[in-house]
Design a protein around this nucleic acid. Structure first.
Lengths: 113, 113
DNA sequence: CAGCATCCTATTGGATACTG
DNA sequence: CAGTATCCAATAGGATGCTG
């Protein structure tokens, strides 16, 4: 089965690998509400470094989930937005983020050390 | 805001870090349908090593998402299942897995090299 | 069967400095 | 502003061998 994430070496496994990192999840979600410029993203996704942000954005572009638009003028203005495909991915991520928001405190509080 | 995944050093960010890896996602999902024993998990989650599987299971246990039960007899039989909390997490992951299953081929096909 | 210990390599990711 | 380049530290993760 081609879409079986449990099978090695299948496309689904590869895509999961791209989306599974915490940075991709956060960046994609940050773009869901509306497009953002590079420095906005760096501020919104607190703690991400330039290197990780640009690497994550490149990876998301290559997968066709994020669109990069360069504006006119000096200094350059670059805006990132989710594509139609990316919107679907981000939507699929919101239940996870919602669940984490709701349960994070309980988990960290009860954690067995 | 305590549950804000976009804020550094908040519980939500930490929990996201635990769940974000591909192994945690797959293991948790593999346990959603029904409990499984160690060797079943290793077979179902194709490609995972003993080291990564046991590390993932330990992490999920510490977060209270997975329960480990040791059976009687020799050789030992150890069964893993999702807790109530873990069931919620796994449920929050299914939209993501479903989306990946549905779109993985399109993504890998159109990938800009 | 269900793992842990060890060794090793590869990838991730932060800090810093620099550029068009 | 929007990155890229470089260096380096930390982590992930595979292979192998061993144990109760």
């Amino acid at each position: 089965m081609l879409g079986d994430v449990f099978h090695k070496d299948c496309p689904a496994r590869e895509v999961l690998g791209h989306l599974a990192g915490r940075w991709a999840i956060l960046v994609l979600t940050a773009l869901l509400a509306h497009p953002r410029r590079y420095h906005e993203l760096r501020a919104v996704v607190a703690g991400i470094s330039d290197k990780s942000l640009s690497a994550t954005l490149r990876s998301l572009q290559q997968d066709g989930l994020v669109c990069r638009e360069v504006g006119e003028g000096q200094p350059p203005t670059v805006t990132y937005s989710v594509t139609h495909l990316g919107r679907g991915a981000a939507a699929a991520l919101t239940p996870l983020l919602d669940w984490i928001r709701a349960n994070a405190e309980e988990i960290t509080a009860r954690r067995t050390p």
